[in-house]
Amino acid sequence: LGPKYVGLWDFKSRTDEELSFRAGDVFHVARKEEQWWWATLLDEAGGAVAQGYVPHNYLAERE
């Protein structure tokens, strides 16, 4: 699936296409579209919880 990303700060969605998340949440990014990335929010087991657009500057690649 490629690298995983972690949320740096809490983010509250403003549209139906955006995905709310908390700092520390883990994502798989499917598409990078300039300022907004289409991402899947993952649970602790790595299963998909939700999908939506997230601001790229709120995520960091997980080491």
Rank of each mutant, 00 (worst) to 15 (best):
P55F: 06
A30Q: 15
W38E: 01
H56I: 09
K32F: 08
E63W: 11
Y53L: 08
V49A: 06
E34L: 10
E61R: 10
Q51L: 05
V6I: 12
V49S: 06
T15F: 10
T15S: 13
H28T: 14
W37F: 06
K4Q: 14
L41D: 00
Y5G: 00
D16I: 08
E61K: 11
W37A: 03
V29C: 05
V26K: 08
P3S: 10
F21W: 02
L1N: 13
V26N: 07
L42H: 03
R31K: 10
G47E: 15
P55W: 07
R14W: 08
L42W: 03
W9A: 07
G7R: 00
E33R: 03
R14A: 13
R62Q: 15
A30P: 02
W36N: 06
L42Q: 01
L8W: 06
L41I: 06
L19P: 02
D10H: 06
L42F: 06
R14M: 11
A60I: 14
A45Q: 14
A39F: 02
E34N: 09
Y58A: 11
E18W: 14
E34W: 06
G7I: 05
V29S: 00
G24T: 02
A48K: 08
K32D: 03
R62W: 15
R62I: 15
F11W: 13
V6Q: 06
E44R: 08
E17D: 13
D43N: 10
G7L: 07
K4M: 15
G47S: 14
G52E: 02
R62E: 15
V6T: 06
G46E: 07
W36F: 12
G46V: 03
L1F: 13
F27K: 01
G46M: 05
V54N: 00
P55Y: 07
G47Q: 15
E63Y: 11
G24N: 05
R31C: 11
Q51G: 03
L8R: 07
K12Y: 14
K4A: 10
Y5C: 06
Y5N: 00
G47L: 14
V6A: 03
W38F: 13
V54W: 03
L59P: 01
N57M: 07
E44A: 11
A45F: 14
D16N: 13
L41F: 03
E61P: 14
G2R: 13
Y5E: 00
L8S: 02
W36L: 10
V49G: 04
K12D: 14
V49N: 04
H28F: 15
K12A: 12
D16A: 13
A60Y: 10
E61H: 09
H28K: 07
E61S: 08
G7M: 05
A39Q: 02
D25R: 01
